[in-house]
C-alpha cells in the first residue's frame, strides 16, 4: 500500500513534469509562434490604433489656420496644468477687438494622456496624435507650442 502510493506519487510527478517540458519543447521547435515585435526595425510598418493617445496636437489646415478660439476650456479641464493658453486681443477687419490665442503652451512632461482636454474642447481644435516616441535629452524640449507661428483662427469658428 505504501509502495503503491510512493510509486504513484513518482509517476504522477514525472508525468506532470513531462507535460511542462512537452509544452516548452513544442515552442522551441515551432519558431513561428514567436511573438517578439522588433520595434525600431518595424517602424515603417508599425501602425498605431487610431484612438491611441500619444500627445495633444492642434491640427492646422493648408492655410495655416487652426480652430482654437482661446476659450481655455481645455486649460480648466486639465487636471495637471499641462496646458497654458496665453491670449491676446486681435483687431478684426471691422475694427472690433476679438480674443485670440497668442501661444498655446503644452507641457508634454506633465501630460497623462487622459483625453479630458480633447473632450472639453467645444470647437475640436485639439486632438490626440498617435506619435509615441517622445524621448528627448532635455526636459525643456517637452514644452511645446501647439499653434504654428503666424497661424490664424479658421473662418467661422466661434
Amino acid at each position: 500500500m505504501f509502495l503503491k502510493e510512493y510509486f504513484g506519487t513518482i509517476f504522477r510527478s514525472v508525468r506532470s513534469l513531462l507535460k511542462g517540458m512537452k509544452l516548452t519543447g513544442y515552442y522551441f521547435t515551432h519558431p513561428k509562434e514567436i511573438h517578439t515585435e522588433e520595434y525600431p526595425d518595424n517602424r515603417a510598418t508599425l501602425q498605431m490604433f487610431d484612438r491611441f493617445k500619444g500627445e495633444v496636437v492642434m491640427p492646422h489646415d493648408d492655410n495655416n489656420e487652426h480652430r482654437c478660439t482661446g476659450c481655455q476650456a481645455c486649460e480648466i479641464a486639465c487636471p495637471n496644468g499641462t496646458i497654458k493658453i496665453i491670449t491676446k486681443q486681435e483687431l478684426q477687419p471691422d475694427g472690433k477687438k476679438k480674443k485670440a490665442i497668442d501661444t498655446f503652451v503644452y507641457h508634454l512632461e506633465l501630460c497623462t494622456m487622459c483625453n479630458l482636454c480633447v473632450v472639453a474642447c467645444p470647437s475640436d481644435a485639439i486632438v490626440m496624435a498617435q506619435t509615441f516616441e517622445h524621448s528627448v535629452y532635455d526636459k525643456k524640449q517637452l514644452k511645446k507650442v501647439l499653434n504654428k507661428p503666424g497661424s490664424k483662427i479658421m473662418e467661422g469658428v466661434e
Binding site: 516548452t24 519543447g25 515552442y27 522551441f28 519558431p31 509562434e33 514567436i34 511573438h35 517578439t36 522588433e38
Partner: peptide
Amino acid sequence: KVAAFMQIRLGPN
C-alpha cells in the same frame, strides 16, 4: 537562444 525560443521570444539578435 534556448530560453528565448521556449519563451516565444527571439533572444539576442
